[in-house]
Write a protein that binds this DNA or RNA. Structure first.
Lengths: 150, 150
DNA sequence: TATTGTTATACTCTATAACTATA
DNA sequence: TATAGTTATAGAGTATAACAATA
């Protein structure tokens, strides 16, 4: 019974990922590259290290993702104003336009999905899902800490 | 407001994936390989093609995953009783034991997460999440069909 | 002729380690 | 000495195309 809820949550994550990959088929964009663009959209111009920390991936990985995004015209490596070791990643105008479009689609998808829930249940569902996400975040942090200690 | 719910759902999927990858660090198992084992556990002995369809990946991909799983002793390529072109994938005893362990852990995680929701809200949350998953599945199928048609 | 699985080739994501330039 | 980013190397997931054996 309770396992069914977890399975539904997993299915949702899986469906979202598949759909995203499909949506960007035929473009140079992938899930990981879009994650970089999204981080820059939310946080503003950032160093590669900032992005690596935000996405919890290696600096080398960010280098490769940015290489691809830069050559495809989505981001620009600018000089950092105070630290000459660092690079400041900025979205290009076209990437900003793309992110704005994604934000609109994201909001519209959220509305569509929430509309599938009985109006009187929405607040309760949101509260429950938020509680689950918070608890899961705790568990994952604990597991990661235990793993590091080993 | 409604976007917040979608973001929480996405965060849950992301956390689950990260934790799974961490849990299998140091073993030959990865998310994709476990997905193959899980499919065989649920469906019983299957051909590689069955697995490819179930996971929606290419046949070549399944070949590689099974190569790794077979050499690590998790699956066995048996002769198909009626079709000599095909191979029948079977879990080894140790893989079956591992899957049983994962099932128990999965059930326990589900209990722990459900316990984070107010008891009176659980049924409503489960109903809401199920409705969202069903609606999302429809949308993804529609999008995929539209994409194929193009 | 269609299907199952493999070989061949290529792109992407990811990580660690060593190195350069700068703090 | 520590940090930001790159070069080098490597494992893993994924896809398409061509090919063999079998239906």
């Amino acid at each position: 019974m309770s396992a069914e809820l977890l399975n539904q949550l997993l299915a949702i994550g899986d469906l979202m990922r598949r759909d995203m990959a499909r949506a960007f088929a035929g473009t140079p964009l992938t899930e990981s590259r879009v994650a970089v663009l999204w981080t820059l959209r939310v946080s503003g111009a950032s160093t590669q290290r900032d992005v690596a920390v935000a996405l919890r991936v290696s600096g080398k990985n960010v280098s490769l993702l940015v290489d691809a995004l830069e050559s495809a015209g989505y981001v620009h490596r600018a000089k950092h104003p105070t630290d000459r070791r660092a690079v400041l990643l900025e979205l290009t105008d076209s990437a900003n336009a793309l992110m704005a479009k994604m934000e609109r689609e994201h909001a519209q998808l959220a509305e569509t999905l929430v509309a599938a829930v009985s109006p009187g249940d929405v607040a309760t569902v949101e509260r429950g899902v938020t509680a689950i996400a918070a608890r899961l975040s705790e568990l994952v942090d604990e597991a990661a800490a235990a793993g590091d200690a080993t």
